[in-house]
């Protein structure tokens, strides 16, 4: 069976300075991997490394069996909404259409199949009625769902989500979880960073516990237990 992500003894960092070390993880298509750890633990670094945006200092990192850089454009990426310009003049439909740009190219107008993919993606996240609205007018949870729809429209085999549940309302959270389950059932490999332990336990079939280094990796019932959590969060962690 082919692997989506395979990291062997990987250290990651910026300009030679390590930010996250000892990462050992294997992710197969259809699996859901949760990256768990406190703020600043290196979760975003690990996600960005899967797009080749962070230097690999040691070890072997492979995405779809080759250099992570080649995953750019093939892997979907859902950024945190607070990194975006809320005033930007763009409709929800156009944002989702961006997911198709890799296929459409610069010049060609969008075809019927592109428009259908956009409509389907919006339908899956339950925002069909918002298609004409300006992105910035939506709530935080709705914005997150639009960005998820954009990633779905690109039909990626690997989907990377950076804190998708941050500042998200309950309705949006349920919609996102449902779509993520559907996607993995269809064979998409998922990487989700979160600091919400309950959510990680419910959603993931693999958990990677990080804080400066990888402290544990495996099924939730082996990793989200007192021992590994104390190591990652410190002895005084309240569990």
């Amino acid at each position: 069976m082919s692997t989506a992500v395979e990291y062997r003894g990987v250290s990651l960092g910026y300009q030679g300075k390590p930010a996250l070390t000892d990462v050992d993880v294997t992710l197969h298509p259809g699996q859901r991997l949760a990256l768990v750890g406190p703020n600043g633990a290196g979760k975003s670094t690990l996600i960005k490394s899967m797009l080749g945006l962070v230097d690999v200092l040691h070890g072997d990192a492979a995405v779809f069996g080759s250099d992570p850089k080649s995953a750019r454009g093939r892997a979907g990426y859902v950024p945190q909404t607070d990194s975006l310009d809320a005033d930007f003049p763009i409709s929800v439909r156009r944002v989702v259409m961006m997911g198709r740009y890799r296929r459409i190219g610069w010049w060609r107008p969008a075809r019927a199949e592109d428009r259908r993919a956009v409509a389907d993606a919006l339908d899956r996240v339950g925002l069909t009625d918002k298609a004409g609205h300006r992105f910035g007018t939506l709530s935080g949870g709705q914005q997150q769902r639009v960005l998820l729809a954009r990633a779905i429209a690109a039909e990626p085999r690997l989907l990377l989500l950076d804190e998708p549940f941050n500042g998200v309302d309950v309705l949006s959270q349920e919609a996102i979880v449902r779509v993520l389950r559907e996607l993995s059932a269809e064979g998409t490999a998922l990487v989700i960073s979160t600091h919400d332990l309950t959510m990680a336990g419910e959603l993931a079939d693999l958990v990677c516990l990080v804080n400066g280094r990888q402290w544990a990796a495996g099924p939730p019932d082996e990793t989200l237990t007192a021992g590994p959590l104390r190591k990652a969060y410190g002895e005084r962690a309240v569990l």
Partner: peptide, 21 residues
Amino acid sequence: LAGARPLTQIAFDRAGAQASG
């Protein structure tokens, strides 16, 4: 005109644009 799509993508979401290649 030629750069409309990538330029809009970058202006709206730098990280996302970079991730999409």
